[in-house]
């Protein structure tokens, strides 16, 4: 097995923001994956911090089960503040 595994790259663009997925790359191991990520994805000062994760370690939801996963949230409108009527004149609520 000579093909290097695939890694997913996440970049924090500046302090205070989350790491965001930017793409992937191949590397033989974590050390080089991190360095390759630096060279490939932050050439133009795009980041202040990097994560690399083996693609094989990502557990994703199945698009086929999307309805079962995400639709039930659709009718729970009471989770959103705009659901509630606030009498006129009430502030800081």
């Amino acid at each position: 097995m000579n093909a290097w595994p695939l890694w997913e790259v996440f970049v924090r663009s500046r302090r205070g923001l989350s790491h965001v997925h930017v793409g992937s790359l191949h590397a033989p191991d974590a050390e080089l994956a991190l360095r390759n990520a630096r060279d490939v994805y932050t050439r133009r000062q795009e980041g202040v911090s990097l994560w690399v994760v083996p693609s094989s370690s990502i557990v994703a939801s199945d698009p086929g089960e999307r309805d079962a996963f995400f639709d039930p949230a659709e009718d729970k409108v009471y989770r959103h503040p705009t659901f509630y009527d606030v009498p006129e004149g009430v502030e800081h609520l």
Partner: peptide
């Protein structure tokens, strides 16, 4: 030897 290394050596 690999594309990632093209980028690294260029840097």
């Amino acid at each position: 030897p690999e594309l990632e290394e093209d980028v690294a050596l260029a840097n």
